[in-house]
Design a binder for these strands. Structure first.
Lengths: 163, 163
DNA sequence: AACATGGGTTCCGAAACGGAACCTGTCAAG
DNA sequence: CTTGACAGGTTCCGTTTCGGAACCCATGTT
C-alpha cells in the first residue's frame, strides 16, 4: 500500500487517512474548529513550519475540506474556512478528544472542557446506531464486502465472525 | 509544537495524535479490529516496510494500546492484541470510516459495509451527548479551559462564542 | 546439512520535516 | 520617494523518517 495511492484503496478508513492521516492535518483542523482562519494565526498557534502549513492548507482546500474566502481586496487576502465536508469531520475530532480525555489526561483531568449547548452540561460523545439508536461498540459489529470488493480483502478471522 | 512533545500538550487531540497521528498507526489498528494479530499478516495485508511495522507495534505496545500475548513457546512467538485502551479507539475508527463512506466513496458506494448485530441493519454511527442524548454537532458545543490551563490557549473567536 | 518459519534488525537512497531567509503586493509614515 | 510594516507565501539546507531489500537468529522439518 503506497501513500500516494491511499485514496484509491477499497477502504474508507484508508481514504480518510489519505486526507487527515499525517502529523499536522488534524491539528490544523482543530484550529479551524476553534475558528482560526488565517495563515499567520495557524502558524503562531501551532508552531508549524511555514511551508508545511502552506502545503497542508493547499491539500485541504484541494480536497474540499477547507475553502478560501477573501476578506479584503488590494492587497487580496483570503482566509480558510471549513466546508460542509470539513464540518463533517467533527465526529473524528470529538472521538479523538474523548479518547485523549479518558486515556491521556493526567491528575488534573482534561485540559479543555466541552459544554453541550442543548443541555448546558460538560459532555462527551456516545456513538449510537443510526438505525436503532443502541450503542455501537467494537464488538457489536460485523463487516461484509460492499460493491466491487471481493471477499479476500477481509481477513479470515473477520469473515468467520459474520457466520 | 514539536512532535516528540505532543503527548505533553494541553490538548487531548494533540495527545491522542502523539499515538495515532502518523501515516501507518491507524491502518495497523484497522487490522487489529479485523482480528489480525501477527507480524507477517500485518506486513502482507498492509505492504508496510518491516522496520516501520516493528516500530509502530512497539510504540503501540509501549503506549498500552496493544499487548503481546504468547501463542507458542520454543520458539517463543507472540501476537498483538488490542487492550481495553485500544478497543476504546473504535469510535475513532468508526467516525473516520463513516466520513470516508460519505465523502470518499465513488459510484459504487462504500467498499465495506458494517452491520450492527443488535438490529441486523447496515448502520453508521451517530454521536449523541452522554448527558442528554441529543445529537452533538460541531456548532452545538462551546469550549472552556479545564484545570491548569489558562484562557490564552483558546483563540479569541472561540472564547467570544461562549459568552 | 539444507531449508523453512516467524519476527525481527541493518543499510541505503528518497521523501518529508524544521528552521531560517527571502520574495511579493499594498499601504502608511517620514 | 525611500523605508518599513503586514499577510501570505516560496526557497534553501540540514536532519528525520520512510520504502525496499538484504541479512540475522532460534527453532523445527526433510
Amino acid at each position: 500500500m503506497r501513500w500516494e495511492e491511499l485514496d484509491r484503496e477499497p477502504c474508507s478508513l484508508a481514504r480518510s487517512l489519505s486526507i487527515v492521516g499525517d502529523r499536522w492535518t488534524l491539528l490544523v483542523l482543530r484550529e479551524c474548529f476553534l475558528r482560526v482562519r488565517r495563515f499567520e494565526e495557524f502558524e503562531q498557534r501551532l508552531g508549524i513550519a511555514r511551508h508545511v502549513l502552506a502545503d497542508r492548507l493547499k491539500k485541504l482546500t484541494d480536497a474540499g475540506v477547507l475553502t478560501k474566502v477573501p476578506y479584503q481586496e488590494r492587497p487580496r487576502r483570503e482566509e480558510y474556512r471549513l466546508t460542509e465536508k470539513g464540518l463533517d469531520l467533527y465526529p473524528v475530532m470529538l472521538s479523538l478528544l474523548d479518547w485523549g480525555d479518558k486515556w491521556m489526561a493526567g491528575e488534573e483531568g482534561p485540559p479543555v472542557l466541552r459544554r453541550h449547548k442543548a443541555c448546558g452540561k460538560i459532555a462527551r460523545a456516545v456513538q449510537v446506531c443510526s438505525e436503532c439508536g443502541e450503542p455501537m461498540g467494537a464488538r457489536d459489529m460485523t463487516v461484509e464486502p460492499g460493491k466491487g470488493v471481493t471477499e479476500e480483502v477481509l481477513p479470515p478471522a473477520a469473515k468467520a465472525e459474520g457466520k
